[in-house]
């Protein structure tokens, strides 16, 4: 059996770990709240934008923009949204596993990765599939300039013909405890125009100045919005998962302290009993 001093040290160590996990849980809760607010304010904008784009495409009866251009796919890019830091349960490993699954039907020659977040970059840096670009150090926040840079990089690569298809792999935020790993085609824009009701195609829209220039103006914002939306969703999922993971860790640490305290008390008691016995038997021996 471990000595009382060993046990005391153990308890102290577990206690300080518990303090850390508790603090991390609270930090994540605060960040989650902010991230959630961001999603709530962002979603209506993104939805309206997609709606408007659909109306524009159906009503004008044309999609005259390179973002819609379907080419024979020679090279595909996968954008992975992971976190910078760990300690968030299986969040990153789930995403990375999904990315590995995705990449299985490709070769290092016809697939490249764009890693957002340190975790995916560090993982794929040592694997055969090339990482074309990575964006790290978000500190758990939305970084607009990095998102702009990423959008610019992706759209440029698509327009120049280096990449023929781009997918986004992120987690859609459902609630604090759940997220869904989602794979979404980014470019070329795959819109279900058939799904948009005929109401809009039948209608005579007035376009100012003209459909082509509106597309020209709308699509870059759309591309930007989509990337930011994915980032916002992923951030909220990350913080949610970390909060849950740290909550569980805090609870486990508490349990461990309880158990260790019990063991320590038992050890102390038996030590006292032993000492008492020694004193009593010593006294008996003197008497005798």
């Amino acid at each position: 059996m471990a000595t009382i001093r060993d046990l005391k040290n153990r308890i102290r160590a577990v206690g300080s770990t518990k303090q850390i996990t508790k603090a991390m849980e609270m930090v994540s809760a605060a960040k989650l709240r902010r991230a959630q607010q961001r999603i709530e304010s962002y979603r209506p904008y993104a939805e309206k934008m997609i709606e408007m784009l659909g109306h524009l495409a159906t009503a004008s009866g044309q999609v005259s923009h390179p973002f819609f251009e379907e080419r024979p796919v020679k090279k595909t890019a996968l954008v992975i949204f992971t976190s910078d830091r760990g300690l968030c349960g299986s969040y990153n490993s789930n995403l990375i596993r999904k990315a590995e699954e995705f990449s299985r039907s490709y070769t290092p020659e016809n697939l490249e990765l764009i890693c957002i977040g340190r975790r995916s970059r560090d993982y794929f840096r040592r694997r055969p599939i090339p990482v074309a670009q990575s964006y790290v150090d978000f500190a758990g926040n939305m970084d607009l300039s990095k998102m702009k840079a990423a959008t610019h990089f992706l759209t440029e690569r698509f327009l120049s013909g280096d990449i023929d298809r781009i997918f986004l792999l992120y987690t859609a935020f459902l609630s604090t405890v759940s997220y869904r790993i989602t794979l979404k085609q980014y470019l070329p824009i795959a819109m279900e125009f058939g799904a948009t009701d005929e109401k809009h195609s039948a209608k005579e829209y007035i376009f100012e100045p003209d459909p082509a220039s509106i597309f020209q103006a709308l699509l870059p914002s759309y591309a930007q919005t989509l990337v930011q939306m994915c980032m916002a969703e992923s951030l909220a999922s990350e913080h949610g998962t970390r909060m849950i993971a740290m909550g569980a860790a805090t609870r486990n640490a508490g349990e461990m302290i309880d158990n260790l305290t019990l063991v320590m008390n038992k050890a102390r008691q038996s030590a006292i009993t032993k000492e008492l016995l020694e004193i009593v038997s010593g006294a008996e021996a003197l008497k005798g």
Partner: peptide, 8 residues
């Protein structure tokens, strides 16, 4: 009852 319109 404005006519359908899309503009920047």
């Amino acid at each position: 009852d404005h006519a359908p319109l899309i503009t920047s």
